[in-house]
Design a binder for these strands. Structure first.
Length: 471
DNA sequence: TGAAATGTTGGGGCG
DNA sequence: ACGCCCCAACATTTC
């Protein structure tokens, strides 16, 4: 007797290796992998333009891998419950499996789909795979979620070590093929071709993720020294691959564990910990994607200023390191994490713009846009989140620039209009003599802007605004 | 995963 | 030789 196939509903787990749901399905018989484009289910957080570009190429890669493995991927657009029921009926499947997601809208989607499938007489099983630890698995002594990173990560260390990753399973196709659509019909690619910079920088898909992962041992050797240096390739750059599930955190974790037990390794593992912490927080405090965790910040006297926001978005603040960072984001869909902290601090504190508008800009422009990580990052920068930077921690863009881009190489790479300035000059063109500027072909206010705000004055203004908050 | 203001210390120039 | 001052370097506190 022929075994009925299992439908594998792909979501943010676009891989074959270390995929518990796929492995379980393949162990039981034929599999029918399905991806359904359903932005209407993402609440206010449908994937932004850069994420959609990535998703298109990642789905293309996944489709090729699954086809080569013998179980072609079916792409569809619509309501996941409707599509899954239809696919299951068409292939004679009685079972649907998928990897859990943890964002509020995704959990709601999962609940709705699972109960709808069950009501239709299908069996449903969900699997982990996108986190090292399930958000419910970590709680403090009184059973509450953690709101401070260090004890959270220590508690994770007391849990069983995440299991070693498993290889891609052998796949068997269903006897009956089922209709899908063409990838292009998902409409993920922009109409205007602006994605060249993304394509030059990234290789979406599981193979590209594996190539990045292969660099990890090298990165770890100098992680402590280079991780904060945007002018060096000091970080793993795995974030978009992790976001789309092209690799699992278990794979990264176990590969890092295979390296020497150094402070560098511990520091890198803690970065995985911050990702876990972000999911833990969004899971337990689902309102925080839109509203501050610390409610007193709802009264904060932001001063919305569309023009200032636009200059920040366009990388025209007049602070070279910030502008280089914002243009790196626009051109490559990614920004170094230290620079994310700096531009966020500047937008929220120097410019007094609400953190939500910065979070939204990142959401649209980052290829690694991840609701949990983005929310944590912005609330941290604004001082209104869990374990956040205290309100008085205001980065000085010039000091940070001298410290972390000492030769100005990063600025030079993204601000061609300042490229002729030397290491001592390039971070602060507003301080230079006219002759030095002229020699480098720079005209402040014309070829490059004067500072949008004076940092010292802006800092004082921010401190005053925060001090006036009722606490 | 800050920066600035303020305080302390100690070497060295100088009368 | 000694006290005085300056100030860099470092530490502490304050925002």
């Amino acid at each position: 007797m022929r075994v009925a196939p299992t439908v594998v509903w792909y979501r943010q787990d676009l891989r074959l290796q270390d995929h518990p749901a796929l492995t379980a399905a393949a162990g039981a018989g034929p599999v029918v992998p399905v991806y359904i484009w359903a932005p209407q289910d993402e609440g206010d957080w449908a994937p932004g333009a850069a994420s959609r570009w990535w998703l298109h190429h990642s789905l293309q890669a996944l489709g090729q891998s699954l086809a080569a493995a013998g179980a072609p991927l079916v792409w569809r657009v619509g309501d996941p419950l409707t599509e899954l029921r239809q696919v299951a009926a068409a292939v004679g499947a009685t079972r649907v499996v998928y990897t859990r997601r943890y964002e509020p809208a995704a959990r709601e989607q999962g609940r709705r789909v699972a109960s709808g499938l069950a009501a239709a007489g299908l069996s449903v099983a969900t699997y982990p795979g996108s986190l090292l630890h399930e958000p419910e698995a970590v709680a403090n002594r009184s059973g509450d979620p953690y709101t401070v990173f260090t004890p959270f990560w220590r508690a994770c260390g007391n849990l069983p070590v995440p299991a070693a990753p498993v290889a891609a399973p052998a796949l068997q196709a269903a006897a009956t093929a089922v209709e899908g659509c063409r990838l292009e019909e998902l409409g993920l690619l922009p109409r205007v071709a602006w994605t060249d910079g993304l394509a030059r920088t990234w290789e979406p898909g599981e193979a590209g993720a594996a190539r990045r992962l292969a660099r990890l041992a090298t990165v770890l050797q100098r992680y402590d020294a280079h991780r904060d240096r945007p002018d060096l390739e000091g970080t793993s750059r795995l974030s978009p691959h992790l976001h789309f599930g092209e690799i699992s955190p278990r794979q990264v974790y176990h590969l890092a564990l295979a390296a020497d037990a150094t402070p560098d390794r511990q520091r890198f593992l803690a970065e995985l910990g911050w990702r876990e912490f972000a999911y833990h927080l969004l899971y337990h405090y689902p309102h925080t994607a839109a509203a501050p965790l610390r409610r007193e910040f709802e009264q904060f006297p932001w001063q919305p200023d569309p023009e200032a926001l636009q200059r920040w978005q366009g990388g025209q603040t007049g602070y070279p390191l910030l502008d280089a960072a914002l243009r790196q984001l626009w051109q490559t869909g990614w920004m170094h994490n230290r620079l994310r902290m700096l531009v966020a601090s500047f937008l929220v504190k120097d410019l007094l713009q609400p953190w939500q508008v910065g979070a939204r800009w990142f959401w649209d422009t980052l290829v690694d846009a991840d609701l949990a990580c983005n929310t944590l990052g912005w609330q941290w920068a604004a001082g209104c989140g869990a374990d956040a930077a205290p309100y008085f921690r205001i980065f000085n863009p010039l000091l940070q620039a001298r410290k972390f881009d000492p030769a100005g190489d990063f600025v030079r790479a993204f601000l061609p209009e300042l490229a002729q300035l030397g290491p001592a000059d390039i971070q602060a063109p507003w301080q230079l003599d006219a002759a030095v500027l002229a020699a480098a072909g720079v005209t402040l206010g014309a070829t490059y802007p004067a500072p949008l705000v004076d940092h010292a004055a802006a800092r004082a203004r921010a401190l005053a605004a925060f001090a006036a908050l009722p606490r």
